[in-house]
Computed example of a mutant assay.
Amino acid sequence: MISYIIRRILTAIPLMLGITILSFAIIKAAPGGPTSLLMDPNTKPEDRVKFEEKYGLNDPIYIQYGKWLGNMVKGDFGTSLIRRGVPVSEMILNRLPNTLLLMVASTILAFLIAVPLGIFSAMRPYTKLDYTVTVTSFLGVATPNFWLGIMLIILFGVQLGWFPTGGVATLNAPFSIWDRLHHLIMPAFVLAVADMAALTRYTRSSMMEVLQQDYIRTAKSKGFKERTVVLKHGLRNGLIPIITMFGLMLPNFIAGAAITETVFSWPGIGRLFIESAFTRDYPVIMAVTVLTAVFVVIGNLLADILYAIFDPRIEY
């Protein structure tokens, strides 16, 4: 297993290198740039040139990429072009805990709700419960998370006043776990809805296939309770597609968090990426891109490891 993990990490290096090359080229090909947003239109051309020379923006693109890659390998993502002199790594580390908190809460919420619903739906196929779960899942997949977030803010934040409308904690208030959870509930739910709906469908489909196998009928004929048969014999074999879904959820949370964090003013990586994209802050954009690629590699690696844990037939 250890040698397999090492091989996977080594094979991920060219993948991440390709992602950085494409991302860097796309960012540079976008119209405008930091100078057009930072400087007054009446700025003298020589001042604009000095700014570009200071940050190497007038170098050929391959030289800019080479410098960035060399610094990135050393763990230096450079400094922000918008927030002069602020290291990008410091900006990432300041916001990463908030995004991780949101991701963990969303993942736990999605699995706690989706897996039981999928199992119950598979145990009672084509009943009112099954149809209700199916329709609700389709609605969850089809509902845009920014629209759902705005609706929840209007209903539960503005009209009912049950939850705060944004932020990670109450301003100027002492640290409180309940206060953090109070701010976390709505954005975590919005971020989890789409994955929750898809996970419910995957669980239902997988469990329905497993429950029709011969060994399940044999276990039922021996007099085992239905709950024991489903949870002990069926669920473990039905977890493979669910594990695959889990591996895909980790990087998707970064993309989903970009919208959710913006709607709820959540100071995380996703919101930082949106802000940096609007201001053409190239070093920050590239740092978040690399971080997302790392999450893709980690998600797929965790899925492969969990395959071997839950299915003894799989060996590496």
Rank of each mutant, 00 (worst) to 15 (best):
S3W: 12
I6E: 09
R7D: 11
A12W: 15
P14S: 09
I19Y: 08
L22A: 14
L22F: 14
S23R: 04
I26S: 05
I26A: 09
G33H: 02
P34Y: 03
P34D: 07
P41H: 11
K50V: 00
D59A: 06
Y65C: 06
K74N: 13
S80R: 01
V86R: 05
I92H: 03
N94C: 05
L102S: 08
V104T: 13
L112K: 13
P125Y: 11
K128A: 14
V133M: 07
V135F: 11
F138Y: 13
G140R: 08
W147G: 06
M151L: 14
I154E: 02
V158H: 04
W162K: 06
T170C: 07
I177L: 12
W178R: 09
L181H: 12
H182I: 05
L184P: 11
M186W: 09
A188K: 06
V193H: 03
A198T: 05
T200E: 00
Y202I: 12
S205R: 05
M207R: 00
L211T: 10
Q212R: 15
Q213L: 14
A219Q: 00
K220G: 00
G223K: 01
V230Y: 05
N237F: 00
N237I: 04
F246Y: 15
F253M: 15
F253V: 04
E261T: 12
S265I: 07
P267K: 03
G268N: 02
G268K: 02
D281W: 03
Y282E: 03
P283H: 01
A293K: 07
F295H: 11
I298K: 12
N300W: 13
L301E: 14
A303W: 06
Y307P: 10
E315Q: 13
E315W: 04
E315P: 03
